[in-house]
Design a protein around this nucleic acid. Sequence first.
DNA 1: CGCCTTTGACCCGCGC
DNA 2: GCGCGGGTCAAAGGCG
Length: 323
Amino acid sequence: MAVKTEDYAAVSFGSSNGYYNHNNPLLLSSSSAFDFCQVEKSELGFMELLGVKDYYTSGGAALLDFPHFSPKATVLPSSPVVKASCDGDSGKECSEVLNHQHHQQPATPNSSSISSASSEALNDEHNKTVEQGVDDDDDEEHDEEQQQKKTKKQLKVKKTKQKRQREARFAFMTKSEVDHLEDGYRWRKYGQKAVKNSPFPRSYYRCTSASCNVKKRVERSFTDPSVVVTTYEGQHSHPSPVMPRSAIAGSLMMQPLSVSTTNLDCSLMPGNYLYHQQQQRPVNPLTSLGFAYNNTNNINSASFSQDNGLLQDILPSHMLKEH
DNA sequence: CGCCTTTGACCCGCGC
DNA sequence: GCGCGGGTCAAAGGCG
């Protein structure tokens, strides 16, 4: 099956400890974005695939400058990272796909694709209210109305589907106790489906922001129930609504462990998640992983020094001792 | 009351 | 044409 390279930018990453398997059917079939993708091992780092020059890996784990994963989530690591080669043409690397997509769809908050999507949605809403405004007791006309509604609904579905195919998708595997990871955005669940050959259902979420068309799917790996596969689709047209001040303070406290992260190409990131980071605070991979972000976990400098929490999962012990 | 989840129904694409 | 699986809708209900 042929897939246009601009349609999908599927990125997955696995680990040296068995999460990635070249022949793993889960990785290829659990998300429809991967149905068409041939996954290959690559020497590229995950952040590199996304256009990030500086990143930090250690001991098979990576500190990704990524949306605020909940502290209970471990981002499954960087190396070896997989690249998705689409279109059955093994010569095409994922980085090319991403760049291609970047050129085609500049991820400015007011990109044409986003504004057209929202205007279409508005038009649909308008049509709906116009239809509902016609209150007729005649059964025949009522049936006709129902028919029209049905037809328009179908058209709407078709339109959204056409649009959907152009959205880039990014899939991530995280080791997490909770299915729905905190990533700094607000989501509304709009569906849940059983996944074939899996005891775990797949959940469908949509960004609650009015004009934002970003969706994500969350499912648990049936081969390893501790692994959650999250697939983002689309790009946020707004900054993250969840950015408490404690995150900023926390990022400063964490600075001894921070690494420089420069030359970031935000447009390549799922959900444009670096938007607020560049605007509001220094980039810090640790805060991005949620250490300083989620104040419900009361992670502060004191508790940090005593209990490293997720850091123990991510950082090798010798690194923790250094601080 | 607003926001969110749940869940059955529905639509669509695809393979046989 | 039919069945299956993926994705979405929307009414109903829960919760703070």
